[in-house]
Amino acid sequence: MILLMLLLGFISTASQTRSLWTDKDMISAKEGEEITIKCFYDSSRFIFYNKYWCFGESWLYCKELCNTETRECSERLNVKDYQRGIFYVTMRYIVLEDSGKYWCAIKKNNADMRSPLLLNVTEDPISVPLISATNNPLDSCSGLPVTIMCSSATGFQLQYSWYREDGTAVAHSNILQIQCEALTQTQDQEYYCEVSNRRHKKSSGTVKAVLLNPTEKGCVYLLLLPDHKSYSCIQTTVATTAMHDPTTFAHQTECNNLSTSFPVNSRHTISVLWAMLRWVLPIIEAVTLIAVHMYVCCKKRK
Rank of each mutant, 00 (worst) to 15 (best):
D23V: 10
D25P: 02
M26K: 14
S28C: 12
A29Q: 03
A29P: 05
K30Y: 13
E33P: 03
E34I: 08
E34W: 05
E34H: 03
I35Q: 00
I35T: 07
I37H: 04
I37V: 15
K38M: 11
C39W: 01
C39T: 04
C39K: 00
C39D: 02
F40P: 00
Y41I: 08
D42Q: 07
S43I: 15
S44H: 10
F46H: 12
I47W: 01
F48G: 01
N50V: 13
Y52I: 01
Y52V: 02
W53M: 07
G56S: 00
E57G: 12
S58V: 03
Y61H: 15
K63N: 13
K63M: 11
E64C: 00
L65S: 02
L65Q: 10
T68Q: 05
E69D: 14
T70M: 08
T70K: 12
T70Q: 11
R71S: 06
R71A: 10
R71K: 12
S74N: 01
R76S: 09
N78W: 11
N78K: 11
V79S: 00
K80G: 02
K80D: 08
D81K: 05
Y82D: 14
Q83I: 06
Q83A: 09
R84T: 10
R84W: 06
I86F: 12
I86N: 10
Y88E: 12
V89L: 04
V89P: 01
Y93R: 10
Y93K: 11
I94H: 03
V95H: 12
L96A: 09
L96I: 14
E97Q: 14
E97I: 05
E97P: 00
E97T: 11
D98I: 07
S99L: 07
G100D: 09
K101P: 01
W103R: 04
W103K: 01
C104Q: 02
C104R: 02
A105I: 07
I106S: 09
I106D: 03
I106K: 05
I106T: 13
K107W: 14
K108H: 11
N109A: 14
N110G: 03
N110Y: 15
D112S: 11
M113K: 09
R114L: 13
R114Q: 15
R114I: 10
S115L: 08
L118W: 15
L118Q: 13
L118K: 11
L119T: 02
V121Y: 06
V121E: 03
T122I: 13
T122F: 14
E123Q: 14
P125F: 09
I126M: 06
S127N: 07
